[in-house]
């Protein structure tokens, strides 16, 4: 969390994270290239470059897409999420090397402009076997490019979190394009079924992880709140909310986090203004609700980030009657101070 923009707000954990990314990428490239040269010594530099960077980018993409649901299922994966955008930019860089070198290798030094050639050399869009798979890779690369250049918080704030999030959800379209790029491309040439098996295993793993994470969310969203009184809804006994922690409730299509702090209960909108992180899964630190994803902070009584930060979320009224927590799902304007409910 920072009040001004820097290229990268380095800290110890980010440095460790990036070193690990660099080491893993180095290990992969070293292994892929050296093993290929040992058992397939006729390999050329161009092929090694194209294949090592593409396979690494696909592997990184799977890791990136797995981090989100893994964090929903187990909070101990959160350190992987914190700096995920660096992993994304790394993946894009390898995909870019693969894409630009392939464009040169397969389309340059010809009678047509390489970009035009990419779209016109193969126009068998009606045939799966002959489908122009390179175009699929190009569209995926464009999505990764847009995501990489907008990955900085500067763009998050200027595009608005909603637009930014929507743009970054296109990663799933890009993933489908990548899978089709591989399945309709190099796998049509290779003999060994291991490539198909690996792609399917990766896709199935991601689908299962997302379904499991989704089902956890659905349980929360399917909670029924039958008791209502003067606009308030009974949500849970006070004892169920731990100190400095929250419980999340889904009422009227909104997720609301009810926090316990200094013997009082406060309710705020559950969605962090930064990247939509679940504020109710955070913790109160130094008197501030702290988002578990990137550590953005909000004051419990008014939903405002402490100065000089300017983020604000909606607040809600909450009251306690006979040890039971009652919540009014009508939101107050973002940053509106509410008194909270005292626990007696």
């Amino acid at each position: 969390m920072s009040a001004s923009y820097a290229a990268v707000g380095w800290n110890k954990q980010k440095k460790i994270y990036d070193w690990l990314i660099a080491c893993l990428c180095f290990i992969y490239l070293l292994l892929f290239i050296s093993v290929t040269l040992i058992i397939n010594e006729q390999a050329t530099f161009e092929t090694l470059l194209i294949r090592s960077t593409s396979t690494l980018a696909v592997l990184l993409l799977h890791i990136i897409l797995a981090i989100g649901p893994l964090c929903r299922l187990n909070k101990k994966f959160l350190p992987l999420l914190y700096n995920r955008r660096h992993l994304g930019v790394t993946m894009f860089t390898f995909a870019l090397v693969h894409g630009s070198f392939s464009l040169f290798q397969f389309h340059a030094l010809s009678n047509t402009n390489p970009i035009i050639s990419l779209f016109t050399s193969n126009t068998n869009f009606g045939s799966l076997a002959a489908f122009p798979f390179q175009v699929l890779g190009l569209f995926a690369l464009i999505i990764f490019f847009l995501m990489a250049i907008t990955s900085h918080d500067f763009w998050l704030h200027n595009l608005s979190p909603k637009v930014w999030k929507t743009l970054h959800m296109f990663v799933y379209l890009a993933y489908i394009l990548v899978v089709m790029h591989v399945m309709l491309g190099v796998i049509q040439y290779e003999n060994d079924p291991v490539f198909v098996i690996m792609i399917f295993a990766g896709a199935i793993t991601l689908v299962i992880l997302h379904l499991l994470a989704g089902s956890k969310e659905r349980k929360l969203d399917n909670m029924k709140f039958a008791l209502q009184r003067e606009g308030f809804v009974y949500v849970c006994p006070v004892a169920e909310i731990e100190d400095s922690r929250a419980k999340i409730f889904y009422i009227d299509k909104e997720r609301i986090a009810v926090y316990r702090h200094n013997n009082k209960l406060y309710a705020i909108h559950n969605v962090c203004k930064h990247q939509g992180g679940p504020l109710g899964e955070g913790k109160i630190l130094d008197g501030c609700i702290t988002c578990p994803w990137h550590g953005y902070q909000y004051l419990p009584h008014n939903g405002q980030s402490p100065p000089p930060f300017k983020e604000k979320v909606s607040t809600y009224d909450v009251k306690i009657i006979d040890g039971k927590v009652w919540l009014n799902p009508a939101p107050f304007a973002e940053g509106t101070e509410r008194p909270g409910a005292e626990i007696k």
Binding site: I27, L31, F32, V35, D192, F195
Partner: peptide
């Protein structure tokens, strides 16, 4: 997790390299 990822990266790197079709001479 890092140990698992390292094992995954090593396995994938070797497997993908080994299973490629042989290049011509």
């Amino acid at each position: 997790v890092i140990l698992i990822l390292t094992a995954l990266i090593i396995t994938a790197g070797i497997l993908l390299a080994v299973q490629q079709k042989k290049f011509s001479t």
